[in-house]
């Protein structure tokens, strides 16, 4: 794994309140990394520390192995959670301004901004004032401002908040497209289903502490474990008494059968076929929400 961003024991206190507690994780180059957790978990504080908007009490964030300083953080495209625009400025001028503060020559900034406005179907709004735009359109303008200088890394704090489903889809597609071009994306959200299909690496934060970090596939494997989702027309009675089965519960029209670790699944399958027709027999892949709830419970049990 080729890391692009390394967090080493980031810690931040606000008075007596511990906002982020000894947080470490690694973001692989070219991945979409989800910083997940409920409201108030410390996601925004973490991101602000990476961007040096606030300085950590302890620990450091390394970009390509070196501390993020004022010059190097400009290599990152940053969309803060609290974002706004100058209401009285015209859209294209505003984007040009964003571009020039990120080091682009004004002409180049203007050219790129125009191209992006066209792509987001905002070309007709270029000479309108920002305040005339709808909220969704303002969000798009904001996002264009973030990527105008073609950063190799994006840090987006709650990028989907305030977007309707169509715009959310549009933004997701764009992020996946940018990922194909090699851009690394770090995004935070508290709405887990939004990023279920987007992230390949995650860090789950709860109450200032990381409780789960790593590749999403591995995590799913771990939490899915030896659990199988079965659908068919067979007699379901007494399945829980079969050898190796530790629990059975219904899930919609299917059965969720959990096997003991190491118990072979083919024994379950053949037992089921003897009882009737099996339509589907698949490994259960838990969604992020599911994983998160269980991780929090495990964490609590661990703490006790």
């Amino acid at each position: 794994m080729d890391p692009i961003l390394d967090l080493e024991g980031l810690t931040k206190r606000f008075g007596d309140h511990l906002a982020v507690d000894n947080l470490s994780f690694t973001v692989p180059r070219g991945s979409v990394f989800g910083l997940l957790g409920p409201n108030g978990a410390g996601k925004t504080t973490t991101i602000r520390m990476i961007m040096r908007i606030i300085l950590p009490d302890e620990g450091a964030a390394l970009l390509d192995g070196r501390p993020v300083d004022d010059d190097r953080r400009r290599l990152i495209g940053y969309l803060p959670e609290e974002r706004g625009l100058y209401r009285k400025m015209k859209v294209l001028e505003h984007l040009t301004f964003f571009g020039t503060t990120r080091g682009l020559p004004p002409k180049e900034a203007k050219k790129r901004a125009s191209a992006w406005l066209e792509r987001f179907e905002l070309g007709d709004w270029a000479t309108h004032k920002v305040e005339d735009l709808s909220k969704g359109m303002q969000q798009k303008v904001q996002f264009i401002g973030t990527i105008l200088h073609r950063p190799q890394m994006l840090i987006l704090d709650e990028p989907f908040s305030g977007l309707d489903p169509i715009n959310t889809r549009e933004l997701k597609d764009l992020l996946l497209e940018m990922r194909k071009e090699g851009v690394t994306v770090v995004l935070s959200t508290h709405v887990l289903p939004q990023v279920d299909e987007l992230c390949d690496h995650i860090c789950l934060i709860n109450r200032a502490r990381p409780i789960l970090t790593g590749a999403l596939a591995d995590i799913r494997e771990r939490f899915g474990g030896n659990t199988w989702l079965v659908k068919g027309s067979f007699n379901g009675d007494g399945i829980d008494a079969l050898p190796g089965v530790s629990s059975v519960r219904p899930l919609e029209e299917r059965l969720l059968v959990e096997l003991e670790a190491g118990a072979p699944s083919r024994e379950l399958l053949s037992a089921l076929i003897e009882r009737g027709d099996v339509e589907t027999f698949t490994r259960f892949v838990p969604d992020l929400e599911n994983i998160f709830i269980r991780a929090v419970e495990e964490d609590k049990a661990h703490a006790e």
Partner: peptide, 17 residues
């Protein structure tokens, strides 16, 4: 004050000190 209330300040100071 405008930059504070419009929440634009964080966008700007991510690139400008």
């Amino acid at each position: 004050l405008e930059e504070k209330t419009n929440r634009i300040v964080e966008v700007v100071i991510a690139t400008v000190k």
